[in-house]
Amino acid sequence: MNVIRAYKQRTVDSARPFLKWAADTYEKSGHSFMAHAVEEQIKFLKVQEEMRKSNLAEHPLFAVSVSDLLFNLVLAEKNKHVKKVKEIFKIPDKRFWWIKIRALARKGDWAALQAF
């Protein structure tokens, strides 16, 4: 319920308390996966927010999922951020490779793909 309420908020800042509350409720009721998923989403929103503030966005970085964000970052060659995001969200190598391959192919960066 609190998750739904959070997503009715106008801004990320006003949504955060609801998400925190939801995570706590899930944790207390023994739904640790759900609690963790909500926590991760809070982190995700924060990362997106930071990137927007630091004006990283000459490329459209905003994304609906962690994988999409990584994809956009690879596309924009923000390698430092790529590494950071990969670590924060513990992206399995296999998925990361696929994201990288897809992004490089999109860019048409065949040299980088070869070197992969």
Partner: peptide, 22 residues
Amino acid sequence: FDFFRKELLQTYGFQQLFLTLD
């Protein structure tokens, strides 16, 4: 179960999937 749910959420997006998974 946890692995797939995490992969799905991170790939297709929390807002897209969270309630559906539930």
